[in-house]
């Protein structure tokens, strides 16, 4: 099965760019809906998979050529971000995949919902909202899906600290036993 080429998409939307390492198109902020509408017109009618990926703030070491023309290792801080990844296929042409990503900040995570275009995003975007805390603008029914409504926090974020284990089981080797020894467990 042949892949959907990303070149026409880049031509149509000049501010979208291609991420070679991830084989994905990074969609510019606020334009996801327009990109999706355009793709839908091109026959990309099937959105298979929607998910989020959380990147913490990290330090990246990079080799660059400085002004004197020498190689130099520079450490720079990559700000944390959340990617919302869409895997798109075309059922009409039986081609795919094309991966598009929406980027957003971790603190104020907000992207455009693509549910009005592909219904298959409905439950999956709800899941990303639940587990990553990404707000989808224009989602018809944005509620928690897997966790219960009163739950606080977003468990799939990398810096999520699990709350104290309610469903405690005395296994002899766990950190849970340590907690138990400290007297934190009410039996």
């Amino acid at each position: 099965m042949s892949e959907i080429s990303h070149e026409p998409l880049l031509k149509e939307f000049s501010d979208a760019h291609w991420d070679e390492a991830a084989c994905a198109v990074i969609v510019p902020e606020g334009k996801a809906r327009a990109v999706a509408e355009w793709l839908l017109e091109q026959g990309v009618d099937y959105c298979s998979n929607v998910t989020g990926v959380d990147y913490l703030e990290s330090e990246v070491k990079e080799k660059i050529n400085n002004e004197a023309g020498e190689e130099e290792t520079v450490t720079r801080t990559e700000p944390g971000r959340i990617d919302v990844v869409y895997h798109l296929y075309s059922m009409r042409d039986q081609t795919g995949p094309l991966v598009i990503k929406q980027r957003t900040s971790r603190e104020n995570a907000q992207v455009e919902s693509l549910t009005p275009l592909w219904r298959s995003c409905e439950l999956q975007e709800r899941e990303v909202f639940d587990l990553f805390g990404v707000d989808f603008k224009g989602h018809p029914d944005q509620r928690r899906i897997l966790m219960w409504d009163e739950f606080e926090g977003h468990p799939m974020r990398k810096d999520f600290v699990e709350p104290f284990d309610y469903e405690w089981e005395p296994t002899p080797h766990d950190e849970i036993l340590e907690k138990h020894k400290k007297g934190k467990v009410i039996v």
Partner: peptide, 8 residues
């Protein structure tokens, strides 16, 4: 149409 759109 709905089946395709909903990713069934």
């Amino acid at each position: 149409e709905l089946a395709i759109s909903a990713g069934i």
